[in-house]
Design a protein around this nucleic acid. Sequence first.
DNA 1: GTCTATACACAGATAGAC
DNA 2: GTCTATCTGTGTATAGAC
Lengths: 184, 184
Amino acid sequence: MALQKISKKEIIAISIRMFRKQGYYRTSMADLAKATGLTKGVFYHHFASKEELMKTALTTLSAWFEEKIFKAAYLPDITPQEKFDRIAESAIKAFTSDLGGCLFANTILETAHVEETFLPEIKHFFQNWENAMCKVFEEKYAQQALVEIAKQNIADIEGALILMQLYKDTSYLQRTLERLKKML
Amino acid sequence: MALQKISKKEIIAISIRMFRKQGYYRTSMADLAKATGLTKGVFYHHFASKEELMKTALTTLSAWFEEKIFKAAYLPDITPQEKFDRIAESAIKAFTSDLGGCLFANTILETAHVEETFLPEIKHFFQNWENAMCKVFEEKYAQQALVEIAKQNIADIEGALILMQLYKDTSYLQRTLERLKKML
DNA sequence: GTCTATACACAGATAGAC
DNA sequence: GTCTATCTGTGTATAGAC
């Protein structure tokens, strides 16, 4: 009856944090076992492989972003500015914590050319984000231009996250978001 | 008297290419030996360690960017627009080849939180880039705003490179550069 | 269910023959 | 100088005792 020290959810949360900070290849199963207070044996009892764990981490985090952050784009009866602010505020928290940036972007740069394994999960995340940004900007821009605006927004934020990680300074993200808001 | 099949310069060039495409951790010395047609033994005769090789790769590439790309910012008797175009054109070539993006940005995301080892080389590259962009924009903007404009330019380009690697589509970089040129 | 022990492959790095 | 062989550590993954 499972006197479990730690839940599967918590294991995944800790894995996300480590993958985001250290990268996929540099994070070993031993690292994760130690961080969760489990043994490798128990870890492999939960996940068949490191790859499966990473996929689970990506889909879990993607669902979390959708529910906790992007969903604000679809709320009725609030202004686009208000939508933007809500998303921006929670995105700052999510991306700046531990100065880890965006797990999906980090993973693309780390693995894209070596294996296509995680591409579907990563593309799904960016598609959700893009859809949300389209919704935020839909009143202001023509349908045709929307997607491009949305992608540009996303690219600019990801770029700011790189400088954030380089200089260990979160103000790049803040300033970029302020600039993007003026497009509304 | 060295009947050398391959020069040290070529070894470094190949290493840069592999590190840029596959990442630092995912590229093994055996991979590099194979790619250069050498044995591991010979490889370690040229470089004391993988870390030293990476540092050499970063400084070599940084010097190449300075000489072949950023230098255009300091040419006399050409307009800022002309400077921008020259830099943009060669930057597109350098960043889109093999869809590998920017080795310095890739490396930051991969290693920043694990080790500070490559930070000086990477920061040096971004400083050179920033200086060049300041030079390009100096006629149009006040001294005070220059650095921020330059960093924003760099961030936006790096963001476009992430989408490029995600969607395997170089048009993001092109469009970003067109947009940035309008700031001149 | 949890832990110990370990298999197996491959990483970075080195030694020593030629 | 170049290559073969090898050392040592660590990675992912598994088997089997309790």
